[in-house]
């Protein structure tokens, strides 16, 4: 399942870049808003980077609760099959 590992590390790197953190500091299960003080613009920036990376448009309703690396990976996987 290397593609999952790859997408997890790619998504973690994107989140780390937007939140100006080191990728090692990010726990895949932690909520960006609660744990890393992400604001709504950070969430928009993360989605924009993901969409460009994977050349997809991610539906807004699926992103509303997707505030962890793991949840974003699941959304991305559903739309890049």
């Amino acid at each position: 399942m290397t593609d999952i590992d790859n997408s997890t590390s790619t998504i973690r790197a994107i989140v780390a870049d937007v939140l100006e953190l080191n990728p090692d500091e990010i726990d895949d299960a932690e909520d960006f808003v609660d744990q890393y003080q992400a604001d709504s613009l950070n969430l928009i920036e993360i989605v924009a980077q993901l969409e460009k990376q994977y050349q997809v448009i991610l539906p807004q309703r699926e992103l509303l609760q997707a505030h962890t690396v793991a949840a974003l990976r699941d959304v991305v996987r559903r739309h890049t099959a």
Binding site: V47, A48, E51, K52, I57, Q60
Partner: peptide, 10 residues
Amino acid sequence: LRHHSGALAE
């Protein structure tokens, strides 16, 4: 335009 999705454009 580099990217467009919903209300967002880059």
